[in-house]
Write a protein that binds this DNA or RNA. Structure first.
Lengths: 220, 220, 220, 220
DNA sequence: GCCTAACCGAGACGGTACGTCTCGTCTTTAC
DNA sequence: GTAAAGACGAGACGTACCGTCTCGGTTAGGC
């Protein structure tokens, strides 16, 4: 997962970026993360971000096309910062840097570990705020949804899929399983529960989802 | 699914409701549905709803504590209106009125039918708008999330679970499967894909999710 | 000055008045006086008056055409109540009931006494509030101004003029003085100073106005 | 009479004013004057002024603490614009610019001319509207009354007093007359009659007031 | 080592929507 | 059968942000 330092989120006729102030950029993204955590999406405004960041509003409008784009970059910054330390954004711990999910040879155990980590991350107010805000924007902004899919969702999906590919090659998954659907099956329930607050994001729930997804619902 | 005619969405110190104008109530909910479909969540405001409904703003504020509460009632109205006609809200067709999902004896076929119907519904702009708006509010408003869970999510979940219970009794599901998790597993991926626009909501996808969920990921 | 008990202030198609509740009427006028004194004109509303009076809003709208009309009746009620006790409304004390200003034979002394009393009354918060509110309405509502002129201003003017007529007959005023202008000259400055808060309403000011008006500005 | 271009009406913690838009300021004051003349005080609202001026509401709230303050500045703008052209605001024509009332040596004639001009101005719908609205606010807002006294009333009073001082020096007024009271005596009746619509503002009335005030009421 | 172009902070601007308040009318309920 | 209670459509209030637009100040190459 690249830090995306020079990629204004989807801007078209963006300025040259040559003179762009990295300090302001970081201050803005940090402020966005903090505010999202403190006041929630509903009260998260451009003016508040600018004020918190000690930045003029124009500096935000110059480099990002929308609040959602700021949030996307903010989440990418977080995920980049975490990547080397073993964590993805809301998607589990990586044992081998940003390049993949852990692979101990035991798929079920690895998936449980990853989902437990994801659950913990989603329960962490520091992440919950921004992610919720970003998701809110993504839901209602197709253009942002594209950027989100491309820059955050796709890499994560590929990472997850990669682990499943390895498992299939190790004979732990059926040959004819659609791995994209499999990823949805494994990670979908957790995301849903988090977004809709449909219940506590416990390790037990994570485990049960993995177990059920792996073995299916039919009787033996 | 009850029409919820007399239940202001989560209001606490609400007025007596005795003198409440049913005509205004319906006009407001209808206007909310229409506007959500036409202009999207971002531009959906109380003033616009009131104007479209031919109603004073205070009439909205008097009976609903938030825009989200209006949207919840609006969706409940839609779901109530549809219930007798064979449709749930974003959750599939009912063969036997509001009391349950279709049960032909063939679980897989029934689930595919339901998920296909749900996918179609979510792709229908008329439903997409309100549901997206409602979900957006639910994500960011814990109080609304409670009301949503109680009045919309819980009944639908029970209905789905009911079908699975019947299937288990018919020997089509393993005895030790956690049916709540099973419901999440089956319906979660579709909801996610819809919300995040992660891909087209096709019948094929619906089928594949059902198949994969039922038989699991492991090799035979 | 008659109490004006049955005269809705300028209403045209007013109800029959036969069944009118005297208790409600008094409660409304009293509430108007009190509220005007407490919260001032800017915050004086029909709803507040009705609530304070323990009366339905419709009871006010049924009998008075405007807030100003209520205030006019309220002031008339006050002036009626005071009349027998020797006081007019904002226009000085009466020694001989409601029929006239004091006449001791000494015009200057009598006028000073009356103006001093008026000044005191205008400085009294209990009167200041209603009178200010009423005047405010009168300034901006020609219809109310007519009713005000007829029912409050005219009688008071006549009373003042009456004292001047008596003085002229006693040889204390020049024969060719226009007594209506004389009244304006004597009472105008005080009213102005009150309305515009142009200075303190002291007895000294009252005395000086009387002296100056009586003897004129030219050198002897 | 100074144009008061840079004096927001009584604002306390007002912004720096450095970047203030003069165009907006003029548009607002002009709109206030026009609307006051057209719809009257009762229907004169901030929103209407902003809309007419083509200005955001906040631009009014940013620079003026109240509607009355806007009206005061509006009247000052009018008076400033008129000053050089020979007219005061509701207070008579100036023969010698903004520095004083006409002085032909004949006090009575001069005062009559001034009061006639004032009467004409008060009868002019263009002035009547704003002045009535401003006066209404002044009556009910002590803070505004202070600003009014300082910025409009005091200069005008000084101007009037100045003419009387000159007259006294010319031997046309008694030495011991209180000139402040004299000013009230001369100008008070006209103001009152205008405000309360106590009668037509004719030249005859103006003349009679001047004559009566100058010579007093007592017999020769 | 200036010149000049950009980005920067700040914040005023024309707007829109908010949630509250009150208006004057209309309807229901309890006495 | 009257009037209190109060819901209703309407719309202004004053506030908060939106996204755009100047402002000077400062910075960083290109000369």
């Amino acid at each position: 997962m690249t830090p995306a330092k020079n990629a204004p989120g989807g801007a078209k006729g963006a300025p040259s970026a040559a003179r762009r102030s990295e300090a302001s950029r970081r201050a803005i993204l940090t402020a966005a993360v903090e505010l999202a955590g403190e006041v929630g999406y509903a009260k998260l405004g451009i003016e508040a971000i600018a004020a918190r960041a000690g930045v003029g509003k124009q500096t935000i409008y110059r480099w990002w096309p929308s609040k959602g784009a700021v949030l996307l970059d903010a989440v990418l910054m977080l995920s980049g910062a975490e990547a080397g330390a073993g964590g993805g954004v809301a998607d589990g711990a990586a044992e081998e840097g940003a390049t993949g999910l852990p692979d101990t040879g035991d798929l079920e155990a690895d998936l449980k570990a990853v989902l437990r980590a994801t659950a913990a991350e989603l329960a962490d107010p520091a992440f919950d705020g921004v992610l919720r805000a970003l998701t809110t924007e993504v839901i209602n902004d197709p253009a942002l949804a594209d950027a989100y899919a491309e820059r955050l969702q796709a890499p994560l999906h590929a990472m997850k899929r990669g682990r499943l590919v390895a498992a299939r090659e190790a004979g732990q998954l059926a040959e004819d399983v659609d791995l994209d659907v499999a990823v949805d099956l494994i990670w979908g329930p957790l995301t849903n529960r988090w977004l809709q607050r449909g219940g506590p994001l416990t390790a037990e729930y994570a485990d049960r989802v993995v177990e059920t997804a792996l073995r299916g619902l039919r009787p033996a």
